[in-house]
């Protein structure tokens, strides 16, 4: 049954898309991400994930961004599951 679910970037599947809905804690991190284009309401796709809590990459608009595992935990995304 398809429904909407909020997960972190880490929990997204490779290649899955969704919409950014917020940031869990880390005000400074949120500001830096927002400045780079990771903002609430924008569509986001997970492009790669690393081994062993390695960094992952996302696509948002025309930009690809690589970010650490801990940061990725803080980005909340609404996905169709």
């Amino acid at each position: 049954m398809a429904g909407k679910k909020v997960v972190s970037l880490v929990e997204m599947a490779l290649g899955e898309g969704g919409f950014v809905v917020g940031f869990a804690g880390g005000h400074g991190v949120a500001r830096r991400l927002e400045a780079m284009g990771v903002r609430v309401g924008r569509p986001i796709i997970k492009k790669s994930q690393g081994f062993l809590r390695g960094p992952l990459t996302i696509q948002i608009g025309g930009t690809q961004i690589g970010l650490g595992h801990g940061m990725a935990h803080k980005v909340l995304v609404e996905v169709e599951r």
Binding site: L33, M36, P55, Q64, I65, G66, L67, G68, H69, M71
Partner: peptide, 9 residues
């Protein structure tokens, strides 16, 4: 600190 960088095409 953690990695955060733009990846150009």
């Amino acid at each position: 600190p953690e990695l955060l960088m733009e990846i150009p095409p």
